[in-house]
Simulated assay, not measured.
Amino acid sequence: MADVVDKVLGVSSAVSGVVSLIFYKLYRNRTETARQVRQIPVWNPDLDLQDHLNMQDNQSLAYAAVEGLITDMGRTLRSHHGDEKGVVMRSQIVEHKSKRINGFWSDMKKVIRDNTEMVPFAISKPGGDPRFRVEVTDARMATQLEDDLQTTYDRFEPSKASLVQVGLDRLFGEVTKGIQETEQMLLTGTSVLGVGKIFLHRGEMKLGPPDDSSRMYIITKMRLLELVRHYESQSTAYKIMAIIAACIGGGLLAYVLYRHTSGWLEKRRQRLEFDEIRRSIAEQRQRSQESRAAESAGEASGLRDEDTCVVCLANARQVIALPCGHLATCADCAETLPFPKMCPVCRADVDRFLPVYRP
């Protein structure tokens, strides 16, 4: 049982360490992202940005931000439930259920449909020249984009099952509450901030993922300072979770080491104890008037059954188990009892053994 406990504690400690490492990496990532975003320049999609790109050796800015309004590039997506127009549309149908697990009812969700549509779009300056817009490339790779979509439709349709059906569902432990349909869009005219690589391609400005994979590609409705605070907040949360996971893992590891150390010390104490018991018995035998050979012969052939060790059934009973007080074993068998030691008569835990000399 002790081995099983040690294995469980060891695995738990290792899992906590891995979780702590994951949270630590997320913390470093968010901290570095906040630092990088805080330092980047913010451009408007206008002639100044295009001239600045033309002056660069590779006609690009490795990591910069552009701020403006979402503009379609000739094609838009129309809401299925209204007149809204946008460039990104996500529609979901989710079934809400209540399921009995181990005697308790828990709410669950089952995604029936999750579809995202996207058309090419650009970021342009409000009231500016549309020729200087910045086209967004690889938008699906951008973080924050789907988190900032505006909800244009949200409807929950309760289940219309009969009372008999509801009763059967509860009997089988799974009840359908209803269906929820939602629609979210990135509407044209929305003010956004795009962070990534800004470059010229065939005379047109574009925004895409940075060449350095450690830098994040971001499209969000937040302003730059809001974005920095957002990542700093995430960084703090991940740091706290990493510390908690590390403390749990360290505590479990310390407990495992304590168990092994205390076990080793206890075994060492018992080994010294039995060495002392053997010395005590030997000294008592030396003070006896009978010769050592006669004593050996007496122990081997003259012992009564009630005086022999209950384990080996050959040697004389030599030690008393405390606190139960049973005189049942010889010193050799008492030492070889498995750890933690228990009395072979009553199975009580043994704190220590005392020598008893029986001539």
Rank of each mutant, 00 (worst) to 15 (best):
S280W: 11
T188K: 12
N315V: 10
E84L: 05
L354F: 07
N54A: 03
Q286T: 04
K109S: 13
P158Q: 06
V42P: 01
F274P: 08
L186F: 01
D275K: 15
D307G: 00
L187N: 08
V19W: 00
E181V: 09
C247Q: 05
I219D: 08
Q234W: 03
G127I: 15
Q50E: 13
T236P: 00
V18W: 05
A321I: 02
A300L: 14
D57F: 13
D46G: 03
K239R: 14
V66Y: 03
T31K: 04
D147H: 12
G86T: 07
L327I: 02
S235C: 03
E295Q: 14
L252K: 07
F23P: 00
D349P: 03
V4H: 01
R292A: 13
R215L: 13
T143N: 15
L149N: 05
S91N: 10
F199D: 02
V256E: 14
F172H: 01
E117Q: 15
T176I: 11
V345T: 15
V11A: 10
V87T: 13
L9A: 15
A142P: 07
P355L: 04
M89W: 00
Q92F: 01
I248L: 12
S98Q: 13
W264H: 01
F121G: 10
R317V: 14
N29A: 14
E84W: 07
T76M: 09
V228Y: 02
T182D: 11
G189F: 07
V37D: 09
F104G: 00
Y153R: 02
Y258H: 09
I320H: 00
S288T: 04
M185S: 07
M55C: 02
R317N: 06
Q234T: 00
G173P: 09
E174D: 05
Q144T: 03
M108P: 01
Y217K: 06
K206M: 12
R90I: 04
D57S: 10
E299G: 11
P340K: 08
K239D: 03
G194R: 03
L227D: 09
K125S: 08
L265F: 05
L186P: 06
A237L: 10
R347H: 08
R287I: 04
K25Q: 14
L21N: 08
K177I: 12
Q56R: 12
D107E: 15
K125Y: 02
D349G: 08
G302E: 13
A246I: 03
M55P: 00
E135D: 08
L207A: 08
